[in-house]
Design a protein around this nucleic acid. Structure first.
Lengths: 341, 341
DNA sequence: GTGAAAGCGCTAACAG
DNA sequence: CTGTTAGCGCTTTCAC
C-alpha cells in the first residue's frame, strides 16, 4: 500500500535499486552521484526505484571505495570546558556545511590518551584532525601526530616538530599585555598569575607576557603559579599566594575553570575585590558580568576559533598548503581592578 | 635502519603483512582478532610482520565486513551549552571504554536539522544514537527516529511514538516541587517561571509542577513565559514580567542560558535579589555560587546523565530490551529567596 | 591449524 | 549513453 515500505523491511542496497529499475548497478551509481552523461529516461527510472525502495546510500561502502570518510576527528582535553565546547560547535557547524561529520575524543588532559586517540582516528581513516593537545611538549603525542600523515590543524597549540602544520592561534600576548599594563598603570607592584598547564601554548604565552613586562623593573614582583586548568589548582595556588606575608595586590587568572577556584580562595581568605585585591581573568564565563564587581577579562571568540580551524582543515584536505592564522584577543577592564592601598 | 619504517611509506595492508610473514591473509586476521586456534609459531611470525610494517588495521574495512561501525551519533541542539557539553563528555568517556567513538551533530535548535541528522547518521551506519531532540513534538523528527530502526536512547526527551525506546530522564518534578514549595512556604503569591522551549520535556515538566502546585490556590498567581533556552528570551520575558503593575515576587529560571538574560533584565529594572525579587534557577552554572546572593538552584548531575545514556545505549546495542532510567534532581536553597515585602 | 575463496555495498575504469 | 568488471581491506565459511 504505502509507496515507501521502509518500516520493517531490511534496508535496500543499490543492487536492488538496479534490479527494480532494470538497469545496471553502475547506472544507478551515476545517477545518484550526478554524473552528467545520463539520459533523462535513465535518471527517472532510477529515481523512481530509489523512492519506491526508500534507498539510502551506504556511506561506509562509499568511503571504502573512494577513500574519503567525510569525517574529521577532534582531539580535545575536555569538551565540558565551555571554551572547547564553543570551539567544537563552531567547527562542527562549518564542517557539516561541507558534508563532514565531527568525531570527538576527550583526552581528559592525559597526554597518553592524545596519542592513542590520534592513532585510533587514523585507524578509523578520518580525513582530518583538529588537535587541541593536552600537552604539546609530550614527545609521544607529537610523534603520533607527526607520524599520522593526516591533514591536521592545531588549535592554539604549537611544537617545533609540528611547525609545518596548519594552526589557529589566539593572540594571547595582545590581550594579556593590555591587562598587565592596566595593572601596572594602577601602580600594582605585586602581580600574580594563577596559570594553567604550562605545557600548552595559552599558558606559555600568558606567562611570557607577565615576565616580559615585569623584567627589569625591580619595583614590581611577578609571581607565577603553574598547574592545571582546574578549579582545584586555582583554589590551592591562590590560597598559597594569599597566605604570604606580602601577598600580591593583583591576581590574573589563566582560564575559566581556574577562576572558580580562585574566587573560592579569595572568599575563604575573606578578601574583597578590588579593595584588597585586583582581579583579571582570561576567557569569558557566562556570569562574570554579574559578579560584584564584574571581573575584568582577557577575551576571545571561541566559536570563531572553531570556525577558522574547520576552514583551515577543509583547505588542507582539499590539498592546500598549511596555513597559520592568528585570531585576536581583547582586554575588557572593569572595577575589579583598582589602585592598591 | 629503523625497525618501524612508517615515515613516508604508504600504510601497509593486511595483504602485505601476510606476504611478509609468508602466511595466508586469513591467518593474519585470525591472529589479530585473537582467534584461539592459532599456533605459537604463526602468532609470532604474524606479530613480527605487523611490527616490522607498522601495520594498523583499517576499521573501515572491518566495519564493512562485520556491519558494526563502533560509532555512536549524538544529536544535540547545541553542544556549547555546558549542560549538553557535560552530558556529551560523560557519554563519550563511557562509550570509548567500550571501543565506541562519538559523532556529534548540532541541530542548532532547528527540528528540521534533527531529522536530517538522524538520516545522515543512518547513512553513516552508526551503531546507535543518543538523542536530545530540539523538538520532541515535531512529527518529522519523531518519524525519522522511529523509522531509523537504530538502537536509540532519548536524553531527557519523550514522545508517545517513541514510548518504547530507552531513555534517561531527569526527575525535574522532584527538585522543582521543592523549589516551588520553598517559595510558597515563604508566602510568595506571585510566582513566575521563565521557561525554555515548551516542546521539550524539561520545560514541560517544570511548567507542570508550577501549575499543579498553584492550581486551586486563589491566593497564588502563577505566570508562565515559554520561549527558547536562550539569554535573549530570558531577558525579554523577564523584562515583560517585571514591567507589570503587579510584578511577580519570585522568578524561577528554566535553564542556564536563560539565567543570563533574566539577570540582565533584573539589573536593567534596578531590582535587588532577594529584597525586591526572589530568584531560583534550574541547572548549575559555574559562577552562580559567587553572585550576591548566591542563586538557589534546582540541580542535577549532567555527567551522570551522559554516562547512563551511554550505558543504556550499549545495552541496547548488545540486544537488551529498552529501559528507562530516571535520575534525581535536587533543590539547593540560598539567600536568593526571601519573604516578599 | 591453515589456506583459498567469496563478498560486505559501492565507484571507476573500460568496453561497447 | 549504458553495461561489465574489478576491486577498496577485511572477516568468515569451507575445505584440506
Amino acid at each position: 500500500m504505502s509507496p515507501n515500505p521502509d518500516a520493517g523491511a531490511r534496508r535496500a542496497g543499490m543492487r536492488e535499486v538496479a534490479e527494480r529499475a532494470g538497469v545496471a548497478l553502475s547506472s544507478v551509481s551515476r545517477v545518484l552521484s550526478g554524473h552528467p552523461d545520463v539520459s533523462e529516461v535513465m535518471r527517472n527510472r532510477v529515481r523512481d526505484a530509489v523512492a519506491a525502495l526508500g534507498y539510502e546510500p551506504d556511506m561506509l561502502a562509499q568511503s571504502m571505495r573512494t577513500g574519503a570518510t567525510m569525517t574529521v576527528g577532534f582531539v580535545v582535553s575536555d569538551i565540558s570546558n565551555p571554551l572547547f565546547a564553543q570551539i567544537g560547535l563552531g567547527a562542527e557547524v562549518r564542517l557539516r556545511e561541507s558534508g563532514y561529520a565531527l568525531q570527538l575524543a576527550n583526552s581528559m588532559s592525559r597526554p597518553g590518551l592524545d596519542a592513542r586517540h590520534v592513532r585510533l582516528f587514523r585507524s578509523r581513516r578520518v580525513d582530518g584532525l583538529l588537535l587541541s593537545l593536552a600537552d604539546e611538549d609530550d614527545g609521544e603525542s607529537v610523534r603520533a601526530v607527526a607520524a599520522s600523515d593526516i591533514p591536521c590543524v592545531l588549535v592554539d597549540r604549537e611544537a617545533p616538530e609540528l611547525a609545518g602544520m596548519s594552526a589557529v592561534l589566539s593572540d594571547h600576548a595582545a590581550g594579556m599585555t593590555d591587562a598587565v599594563e592596566h595593572l601596572l598603570g594602577l601602580e600594582h607592584q605585586r602581580i600574580a598569575l594563577v596559570n594553567g598547564n604550562p605545557r600548552v601554548r595559552p599558558a606559555k604565552e600568558r606567562a611570557k607576557v607577565l615576565r616580559r613586562l615585569t623584567r627589569g623593573r625591580p619595583d614590581v614582583t611577578a609571581q607565577l603559579r603553574q598547574g592545571s586548568f582546574t578549579a582545584e589548582h586555582g583554589a590551592a595556588a591562590c590560597a598559597e599566594l594569599l597566605a604570604q606575608p606580602h601577598r600580591p595586590t593583583a591576581v590574573i587568572v589563566g582560564g575559566n575553570q581556574i577562576l572558580t577556584g580562585v574566587l573560592r580562595a579569595i572568599r575563604a581568605a575573606g578578601l574583597r575585590v578590588p579593595t584588597d585585591l585586583s582581579l583579571i581573568t582570561c576567557d569569558d564565563v557566562p556570569l562574570a558580568e554579574f559578579l560584584e564587581p564584574p571581573i575584568a577579562t582577557v577575551s576571545r571568540q571561541p566559536g570563531e576559533i572553531g570556525r577558522v580551524a574547520a576552514e583551515l582543515l577543509l583547505d588542507r584536505i582539499a590539498g592546500a598548503e598549511p596555513r597559520r592564522v592568528t585570531l585576536p584577543t581583547g582586554f575588557r577592564p572593569t572595577d575589579s581592578c583598582a589602585r592598591p592601598l
